[in-house]
Design a protein around this nucleic acid. Structure first.
Lengths: 209, 209, 209, 209
DNA sequence: CGGTAAGCGAGACGGTACGTCGAGTCTTAAA
DNA sequence: TTTAAGACTCGACGTACCGTCTCGCTTACCG
């Protein structure tokens, strides 16, 4: 899916000819993101992408074979970060760990981008695989790791199905953003942490407010 | 959104000319559902709908003003049922109540239809409202009602945020179907009931298997 | 080659559906001729044709399958007339017959159109056939008929190869217009008549000037 | 028009660096001719020329500034010869002089090349000048010279317009090749000589066959 | 005899036209 | 007036080609 995937291990004799201007990739991807955010996936046209990027259409199509593939890379490469367990310092409790990453992966136009990618995933199964890898697996894996850290701290009640619990938060956030109206704000996430995730993991019940 | 909304109360003097063939509605809606299931929302073209339905395009557009609206009705009218609390007999426990509706709203092509509708919802806010009403509110409301019934039975532990819990199951199911790969089978749902929903509501932990 | 070729003898039960707006044909063809005259064949783009004709590109392509075919019809239908022997009154002598048609088939932009058609003929053999029919056969046939009329008058010297002579004038005019610089003016044609065609046919020699 | 025209008078101190590989010129020109013959002018692409010549496109463009200029040189340099009066031995009669050059400037693919050049001439006036010089002036001049030689022999009847007659043969041959279907074979040329050119010049009529 | 400027094959670049196709509207003759 | 059929406008998609530019290499002259 990556554009510059000619890594070709043990092929030091690089092909002749002018090399692709790697900086164009970023310019095109950024133009794509802007246009998706401004006009949505349908409204983002390849001509507009090329024009805003200051390139010809052929340059776009030389790097990405179709609109959906471009969208995929635009969204994936545009993610601020994919958090892993190493990015989240151990704050000493599951709740504060979760609160510390509460704001991750949000942004002004992220939801529209997310939908563009999701739409593309439906069209192309290869794209769907990337989508699944980046957004489903990665996020569930982070949750799972945080839960295991809490387990080692002794926070987790016995008998819990950690795999299942790890999917609850990604599911609820995606549901709010993708299925419901796109309002997974900090308050919602805090409420989810306090009333769903932490109780599920630890067996405790939040104090009445 | 309903097609035949020109009933014009107190207009007994019916208009001249040929009357609409009401049976066309169903034919067109079924053609729409088939095509969405076969080719996805993008691949479902209005020409193809008209051709498969054996009608002209004008007949389609006379009844639905756009592709998205047609998609909405195709999916909504195609649903087997929208369950309400009255449709679910009180089985005496939250778990068995939930298990009794485990198979609802599934079907061979339902996921693709769901996605078609979801896509349409992004394009048209009016459609989004219908979508939200039919798929978000309705399902959450059913969960909420089941939880309240369990509360009256005394199953619910104190201090629970029932509104939040009511959204967990719809969120996880939709996530599996729409975001992940579309595999919300009976086993998954049972596992979700036993390890997530019931523990959240009752504070209990499932017996080790 | 003609656009409206649905003459379909003995098919009185015409198909349903909107009929093609026959007036569009003329509008499109005229736009094509204008653009060829203004910008040449290469400069005449299908987008520009559609825009000037006030139609969509699909309407153009529904009627003509490609740029070359459109060019053919534009030029053929744009010809002022194809003269036949019946159009040329018998003036009593070959020379005055020829002089009476001296100005035929000329016009401000006719040469550029001619070239457009000629170019198209090279690309498509079917087009070449039409071209040959309209511009080679028709013109030679007229010359041949005029020569035979003169033969009946007794103007033609014995032993002449009338078929060969009939091609001389079309060849020389086309040569001047297509191969040389496009200057087959009235003076040139008169000179050709007096020093080439009439001498060839009658065996006479023009009076010294 | 010539490729190596950078002779830069009074610049004997030639530039440093590698010199152009003169052999490339011929390879490129031959590739051009082949492709024009195979696919026509439109179908002959610069990429294909470079590929078949085994060179890069830059090497082509370093030598010829555009497709039309390349075409010109390809056709001009590809001609077997441009005959002048010095190339045609005096055979003692106009007819035998003409018959001796009957086969000149023909060849398997010459017609397509001719059309390529002609097409290019329409696009670029500078090319048109070269075309006119090489194919119109040169050929008419040869005819004119042959006629004058016949005049000195006493073959030419008085009062003839030799300039006009000199254009008849080039016009008829070009017409056959470019406008009509490309069939100016030896038989046709002999017939033209016997029934058109010689009668026009000498006033005689061919013997009936 | 080594530096250097230019030529070389390969191919990416911006731009632009082509021909296809889909959405939604409009028109026809018949029912 | 509705129907089936299908032509209509608009505009995006993806391909191809032209003429330019850039890469890393190779050649041949010139100091």
């Amino acid at each position: 899916m990556q554009a510059n995937d000619d890594v070709l291990v043990a092929a030091p004799a690089r092909r002749p000819g002018r090399r692709r201007d790697a900086s164009k990739d970023d310019v095109i991807l950024e133009a794509t993101r802007q246009l998706i955010a401004e006009r949505g996936y349908e409204g983002m046209t390849m001509d507009a992408v090329a024009e805003r990027a200051g390139t010809g259409k052929a340059t776009v199509y030389r790097r990405w074979p179709s609109k959906v593939e471009l969208t995929v890379d635009a969204v994936i490469c545009g993610r601020q970060f994919i958090l892993t367990i190493d990015d989240v310092p151990d704050t000493g409790s599951l709740r504060s760990d979760l609160m510390s990453i509460r704001g991750a992966a949000r942004g002004s136009r992220n939801d529209e981008l997310m939908h563009g990618l999701h739409q593309a995933a439906r069209v192309d199964p290869q794209v769907a695989a990337v989508f699944h890898e980046q957004f489903v697996i990665a996020r569930t894996a982070l949750m799972r790791a945080l839960l295991e850290r809490a387990l080692h701290r002794g926070e987790i009640a016995p008998g819990r199905d950690l795999d299942m619990i790890a999917t609850v938060a990604p599911a609820m956030i995606a549901y709010q953003k993708v299925v419901a109206g796109g309002k997974a704000g900090p308050d919602y996430i805090e409420r989810m942490i306090d009333h769903i995730i932490v109780p599920l993991a630890t067996g405790s019940v939040p104090a009445a407010e």
